[in-house]
């Protein structure tokens, strides 16, 4: 949702466009809501005035310095007006304006409205035009330092990092964020993104990441972000199997034996048992009966809110077991 904003305070020297001599040549155009307006907003006088003139220049196609200033006022009154931003870009392009100034300006606007689609998109286009992303890591860092999960900021950062190949310090950046808050899922996601686009998940990197993730899970066993990342790493192994790394099999076994009943551990254990069944591997530590028991434990004790799901998984596993038995007995 768009964030709310109020009118900028009418400063003493603010003059409505209709009273500005330099705008006398333009005939303002009122909004045409039709004879029966609905969802009619009680616009302030300033809002109405600015947009009456904006409509006029949109129609005339005027692209000038004064129009640039007008779009500034219009965007400030409603930063979600994508028509204003689009027209502003047309004007900037036409005037061959100083884009460094524009970048500063949009930076200020983003800081005021960090959860708005249009302002981030505008910044992206300006950076594209400048072919210079030297401010972007610092800028997104500033926004993320106030809200470390701001989706727009991460999206912009990913685009910048990938487009301008700014990966050098990104893993370190992610590490710092995870030290601050190991539950920051956006940071985990960025970790995956960086590795995919740099080294890739080579066997060495997989090993490193598994160890890293396991240690984070040990610290906070109920951290779903880390468990999800663990799966994200394992799907890059040669077989793509979650059972492909003995280290993880032992790790889960150990946690369970120590009495850990985190629903994420139990869910992961069920998937290990299921995969062994599918692969036709008989495992002493991970028999399918264990998975069925865990589904029951999750449904009635450790993860009751997901009872329907666990009952479903249990039915699915039971069916898989009987399929396997049928195949074995008929062969």
């Amino acid at each position: 949702m768009t964030d709310s904003s109020s009118d900028c305070t009418l400063e003493e020297e603010y003059v409505l466009y209709k009273n500005r001599p330099q705008w006398r040549d333009v005939t303002p155009i009122q909004q045409d809501d039709g004879p029966n307006p609905v969802v009619a907003i009680a616009y302030s006088e300033q809002f109405r005035d600015v947009y009456d003139y904006f409509r006029a220049v949109l129609r005339s196609g005027e692209k000038s310095e004064r129009v640039l200033e007008l779009t500034n006022d219009a965007a400030q009154l409603n930063p979600a007006n994508y028509t204003v931003w689009q027209y502003r870009r047309d004007v900037l392009h036409h005037l061959n304006s100083n884009l460094t100034e524009e970048l500063d300006y949009i930076g200020e606007t983003i800081r005021e409205h960090p959860k708005n689609y249009q302002v981030w998109h505008h910044r992206r286009v300006i950076v594209e035009w400048m072919k210079d992303a030297s401010n972007e890591l610092q800028f997104t860092d500033q926004v993320l330092s106030l809200d470390s999960k701001n989706y727009h900021a991460w999206q912009h950062r990913q685009w910048v990092v990938a487009t301008f190949k700014l990966f050098d310090a990104e893993l370190q950046y992610v590490n710092n964020l995870l030290v601050k808050d190991v539950r920051n899922n956006s940071a985990w996601n960025q970790r995956h993104f960086v590795i995919v686009h740099t080294t890739g998940f080579t066997p060495e990197i997989i090993q490193r990441e598994l160890e890293f993730t396991a240690s984070k899970i040990k610290d906070v066993v109920n951290n779903e972000s880390a468990w999800n990342y663990l799966r994200g790493v394992l799907c890059h192994t040669e077989s793509g199997n979650i059972t492909s790394e003995d280290f993880i099999l032992d790790f889960c076994q150990e946690l369970y034996d120590m009495g850990c009943r985190s629903p994420y551990l139990l869910a992961f254990t069920i998937d290990i048992c299921e995969e062994f069944l599918e692969l036709g591997v008989s495992s002493e530590a991970y028999p399918i009966q264990k998975a069925l028991q865990l589904c029951e434990d999750l449904a009635v004790e450790h993860d009751k809110i997901r009872k329907e799901y666990w009952k479903f998984i249990s039915r699915k596993l039971s069916q898989n077991v009987s399929c396997k038995t049928d195949v074995n007995s008929s062969s």
Partner: peptide, 13 residues
């Protein structure tokens, strides 16, 4: 559906 206060200016689009 009929009238909205000034604070809705940010939803004018």
């Amino acid at each position: 559906l009929t009238h909205l206060p000034q604070s809705f200016q940010c939803l004018d689009s």
